[in-house]
């Protein structure tokens, strides 16, 4: 198929005028800017360099894993029941972290230990991809591998925290470049690379095509299985990398952490739609959503909102932003 290399997310919505979609594209940014301004005026600490570095650090793990999930949704479609979804992403991150920590504890150099963790994660991604291409529903297939990964994590760790020490992990946790944490640079680098692949190449355009309308894509000569298999492998590899970064951040592999981070990973991937004029999941949007969600936790704490209310306030704000985008989209139809 000869693909026209117009980034899918930048194409106008069908039937929409050329001016209104532009407004729709900015509504998400506007909503988020309003929230961030509220935090900035509410707390003198919010826009300090150290606080921004803290937010970026907290966003990185979810941002990197979220980008992986975004790829799956792009190639599989955003129908939650039948489209692309990877429920194993949190458990895979946990398993990769445990493998990394065990390898490091056994004396393996840090970089190699990380590689082991990412490889194990990638292997699960291959299983996910093959399962989906063989016709299993992604929701159920990845639910099964989530169970497998979570169980393996408990077996390997014996349900105990596994400490990681050494310069490599300390550097991963604390290094700063030009005032920005190393992990944030890594998130930006991965985000940029994946954005280029999925926004500027024929592979990316085709992935969106098989995700949005697999029948039409097949008629056009594309093989959806190829793109979906690759998406699950990439998703798990990125989840594995995120898991190893989480180990560095916590200085230990924590059993069961995969289930704790899954919802936030799913949240940032789907929330990326608010940055899209066509309300599609996007890579750049996922990175921005990860930063926004981290900023929400941070900002609400800075405003002195009682911790019990932070979850509710966070959910309400996200709901408002998503609702505004959806309503705006309907008007534009």
């Amino acid at each position: 198929m000869s693909a026209t290399l117009v980034p899918v997310d930048e194409a106008p919505a069908p039937g929409a005028s050329r001016t209104k979609p532009r407004l729709a594209a900015w509504i998400g940014y506007a909503g988020i800017t309003a929230v961030l301004l509220l935090f900035a005026f509410g707390s003198p600490f919010f826009l300090t360099a150290s606080n921004i570095a803290t937010i970026l650090t907290q966003a990185s793990v979810f941002g990197i894993a979220g980008v992986g999930l975004a790829i799956v949704i792009i190639a599989g479609g955003d129908d939650v029941l039948n489209g692309g979804i990877d429920l194993s992403t949190g458990a895979v991150a946990g398993l990769a972290g445990t493998v990394t920590a065990l390898a490091a504890a056994a004396g393996t150099p840090g970089m190699v230990a990380v590689l082991y963790g990412v490889l194990v994660a990638t292997a699960i991604g291959v299983v996910n991809g093959l399962s989906v291409t063989l016709g299993l529903r992604p929701l159920l297939a990845t639910l099964a591998t989530m169970g497998v990964a979570a169980s393996l994590e408990l077996v390997f760790s014996q349900n105990l925290k596994i400490a990681v020490t050494g310069g490599f992990f300390e550097a991963a946790r604390g290094s700063v470049l030009f005032g920005i944490p190393l992990v944030a640079w890594l998130m930006a680098l991965i985000g940029a690379a994946v954005w280029w692949v999925y926004g500027k190449t024929s592979w990316g355009v085709n992935s969106y095509a098989v995700g949005q309308n697999p029948t039409a894509a097949q008629v056009a000569g594309l093989d959806p299985r190829r793109y979906r298999l690759a998406s699950y492998v990439l998703s798990s590899a990125l989840a594995g990398l995120a898991g190893t970064l989480l180990v560095a951040r916590l200085s230990a592999a924590v059993p069961g952490i995969g289930t704790q981070i899954l919802l936030d990973i799913i949240l940032v991937a789907y929330m990326s739609m608010i940055f899209s004029r066509r309300r599609l999941v996007s890579v750049v949007g996922t990175v921005l959503a990860a930063v926004f969600v981290a900023a929400l936790d941070n900002g609400l704490t800075l405003l002195g909102v009682a911790s019990q209310w932070v979850g509710a306030a966070k959910g309400l704000l996200i709901l408002l932003v998503l609702a505004s985008v959806t309503l705006r989209g309907r008007k534009n139809r």
Binding site: F45, T54, V254, N298, L302, G304, A306, S307
Partner: peptide, 24 residues
């Protein structure tokens, strides 16, 4: 008082402490 509780999540507990540091 600025009160936070981490819902038994280690990652959130670390983030909570970091967010508190910001407020000096």
């Amino acid at each position: 008082v600025i009160a936070t509780q981490a819902e038994a999540k280690d990652e959130k507990h670390v983030s909570d402490v970091e967010n508190l540091i910001t407020q000096s």
